[in-house]
Simulated assay, not measured.
Amino acid sequence: MFWRDGNQVDHVSVTDRSFQYGDGCFTTILTKSGKMQLWGQHVKRMERALLRLKIAAVDWQQMKAELERVVSRKALAGIKIHVSRGEGGRGYSPCVNRGPLITLSQFDFPDSYTELRQVGLELTLCEVALGLNPLLAGLKHNNRLEQILAKEEVERSDRLDGVVLDINGNVIETTMANIFWIRDGVLHTPSLDMAGVEGVMREEVIRVANQDELPISIDSFKLNTLMSADEIFVSNCILGVAPVTKIQDAQFPIGSMTRRIQEKLGQ
């Protein structure tokens, strides 16, 4: 179900700039029995995106009240906050007749995710490569064409997800998650200064690692570094943390550090 301005809707205006240009941003939140998880972190993430995209600020206190009215009461579910710059504006001009416009939608927790957290998932390696764009890197903006093309490639494989590189051959993420790996006792994750999405759960993993004084390397890494890992896992806010057991034909064990991070995050 979808809501806008407190009303349930099933359509948006053809002049909505998110429809016309992907002009906006979004975030997806895990809910537990009607309670939004990591709310403060999601707000900070959206505020960063709105600031960089030069979209007017959102009243987050009012937004939270609206979310609490429509959120699912199921034990596990999800809700998405989608922000469009607004309606109107000729061509690329960011001047709008009204906005920003916020659409809320709820969805069921994927049945497979609980099992994936335990048994892990297998990844393919995507041929689609991400372009470099420091202006938009890190943001979960509404134009996800690269990820859609990568996901189309994954869906032609026998795997659930795939590793995505940038055009320089650096590991960036998967089509639906951030990626981490342990090698020689050091936690590695790609720098997202030029491409990729900075997930809220990625920040949580880094926070937990810092609390545990686990050495962290955030840098540019080629594929061979990932493939020589001792253990690998992925993260997003709905899935949480899930181990990776295979990339292409290479197999990886479910490691103790992955389990430790899962435990610290309440999984």
Rank of each mutant, 00 (worst) to 15 (best):
Y92E: 03
I238V: 15
R260L: 05
Y21Q: 02
T114G: 06
P134R: 08
A137T: 13
A177V: 03
Q8H: 10
Q41N: 15
E231C: 10
E153C: 08
H42Y: 10
M194R: 10
I182R: 11
T27L: 05
H11C: 12
R260N: 02
R183G: 06
M194E: 09
Q62E: 14
F2R: 01
A229N: 08
D111S: 10
V9D: 03
P190G: 13
L187K: 08
E146Y: 06
D111I: 04
E115V: 11
E127L: 05
N133L: 14
Q147T: 02
A49Q: 11
T28S: 07
T174F: 08
W181Y: 10
E204M: 14
L226P: 05
T27W: 02
V128D: 02
V186I: 15
V241P: 09
D59P: 06
P243R: 03
S157P: 04
L53P: 01
I238L: 15
G169L: 11
E204L: 13
P110S: 12
Q248R: 10
N170F: 14
V119D: 06
V71I: 12
E198S: 11
N142S: 02
L101Q: 03
T225A: 15
S191N: 11
K151P: 01
A195K: 05
N236I: 06
M46A: 12
R4Y: 09
V200A: 07
G120P: 01
S93M: 04
G22C: 01
Y21M: 06
R259S: 12
S33P: 06
L265I: 07
V154Q: 04
Q211A: 11
I261V: 14
L136Q: 11
E173S: 14
E66A: 07
Q20I: 08
S72F: 01
L139G: 04
E231T: 12
R45C: 06
D166T: 06
M201R: 08
E263L: 07
E68C: 08
R117A: 14
I254T: 13
V58T: 12
G34K: 14
E66T: 08
F252G: 03
I79A: 01
Q37D: 13
G78N: 06
W60S: 07
D193Y: 01
E203N: 13
P110I: 14
G34L: 09
D193S: 15
G40T: 12
F107P: 00
A242F: 00
N224W: 15
E213L: 14
T189H: 05
E68N: 13
E127G: 08
K35H: 09
N236C: 09
A195W: 05
R48C: 05
N168Y: 07
A56Y: 01
D230A: 14
L123G: 03
T258Y: 03
L116E: 09
L187T: 05
K80S: 02
S228V: 03
V43M: 10
M63L: 15
P134I: 15
G91E: 10
L239Q: 09
G78W: 03
R98M: 10
S13Q: 04
S235N: 07
F252V: 07
Q251G: 01
G40C: 13
S33F: 07
Y21D: 01
M176E: 00
T258D: 08
V200L: 10
E146D: 15
L104D: 01
L50M: 11
